[in-house]
Design a protein around this nucleic acid. Structure first.
Lengths: 238, 238
DNA sequence: TTATATTTGTGTAAATAATACGCAAATATA
DNA sequence: TATATTTGCGTATTATTTACACAAATATAA
């Protein structure tokens, strides 16, 4: 921090922004939330939701505010991903450094409400994400890698599912996000062995045929308790 | 990014800095590099090396520059850790947002050269890190957790050792950083099974007695090659 | 009504990996 | 020459992962 005091007048022309990579899941497909820019150099281009941080606003709060303003979406999981900002010439007026956040929404918040805020927002299947402005495609790629990776060592899959779900839902989520075949029986055994699922007792039939299945829910309290005893969530596959 | 275009005059009074948590290792003890602040409100206080980023400088380059200026230390591993900046009142003139970097030095660069740059720099044993300015203790804690964790799934331990090392060196490094007992024989078997070590053929005796041991070195090329075939480095202990 | 397709729930044997050890070889020192 | 110390290697036991089969509950078609 010597620089500060050697040169009391800091002449730094950098603005700081936050951007969010928000993932949703529906029917075996992972979606990313993007917004269409209205004005400026990138008008009509798709970009990630985000914007400049306010002076008195914590970073994470800034992300939530921008998400609300631009898309109306409320997320169920939010964590810092990485700070980008080496594209020195991104904006002609000043350099922009952007703190990217990784977020998940559950199905309840997946449908975009047709209010004014969400007019320019859209879910893109991860395979069909268009070329985005700034370094946003790079951010999506990194976030996607984080999603795949984190799914195997942290129970974040539940944030993409309904509060109550069938085992087949959970299994399909893992299969499609990890792009792998999973043995249904071993998967069930493994997850159940953790003891972090609650049986709701409810039984429901999903498709048009087949035996009805039991609904489960994620027992977060139990999970947090287990964490204290050095419990390690982990799903691996051959 | 709508905010930008709704309000073309962005009135943001935030400065962006970088800070480094640099770890060194010597004789079973983990050290952190700190510098003593000369001027300003925190004069004489210890802080992490770092400083304000320049307008045209990539973040990582800024870290390397500050490290060089303030400590003369060259790191062998450097990666972004997390961006801090929710302490809105850290500086009375402007808010500071700091991108923290996680770094490792090998023993060759562990000794601080007594040139002007390094006068105010010092290695603190991780257990004896004093109260640092700003959010720097929080940064150290997070970085320490990352070090422990990463050691188990990425071969970063070699960055803290000499280029050529005995198996007992590697084992002691793991024991002391993870604060765990490790079975010497199983550890050796496991590491060797990865096929990422090169036998130098050299034999050397470490202490004053005992059978001389063989020197090994980390074969980075082999490791990078294995990564392409979905190889996963992983060390776990009961 | 009966047969068929579909989905769920449970169990077990085989293969693989992790753990817990014992002992000989090579050196310094007493 | 005996003892302490450190290295190098091997094997039995235990735990975990993987592969795989069949019955139960439902909808639909014959």
């Amino acid at each position: 921090m010597l620089f500060l005091h050697k040169h009391p007048m800091i002449n730094q022309n950098i603005k700081i922004a936050v951007d969010a990579i928000v993932f949703g899941y529906h029917n075996g497909i992972v979606y990313v939330l993007a917004v269409q820019q209205k004005f400026g150099k990138l008008a009509n281009h798709w970009v990630l939701p985000g914007g400049f941080i306010r002076d008195d606003e914590p970073l994470i709060q800034g992300v939530e505010r921008e998400l609300q303003e631009e898309t109306g979406v409320t997320v169920s999981y939010l964590e810092q991903l990485k700070t980008f900002g080496d594209d020195v010439a991104r904006d002609e007026r000043f350099r922009v450094i952007s703190v990217a956040y990784f977020a998940l929404v559950n199905p309840k918040n997946f449908v975009l409400k047709a209010d004014t805020d969400a007019k320019n927002a859209k879910w893109f299947a991860i395979k069909d994400v268009p070329k985005l402005g700034y370094e946003h495609n790079e951010m999506v790629q990194l976030a996607h890698a984080r999603l795949k990776n984190k799914l195997t060592y942290q129970p974040i899959g539940f944030d993409l599912l309904d509060q109550e779900f069938l085992f087949s839902d959970l299994e399909n989520l893992y299969c499609s996000i990890l792009e792998q075949d999973i043995d249904r029986r071993n998967f069930r055994k493994k997850i159940l062995s953790f003891g972090i699922l609650e049986e709701t007792g409810k039984v429901v039939k999903k498709g048009s045929s087949g035996r009805p299945g039991e609904l489960f829910s994620f027992d977060k309290e139990k999970y947090d308790q287990l964490l204290k005893d050095n419990f390690q969530f982990e799903i691996k596959f051959a």
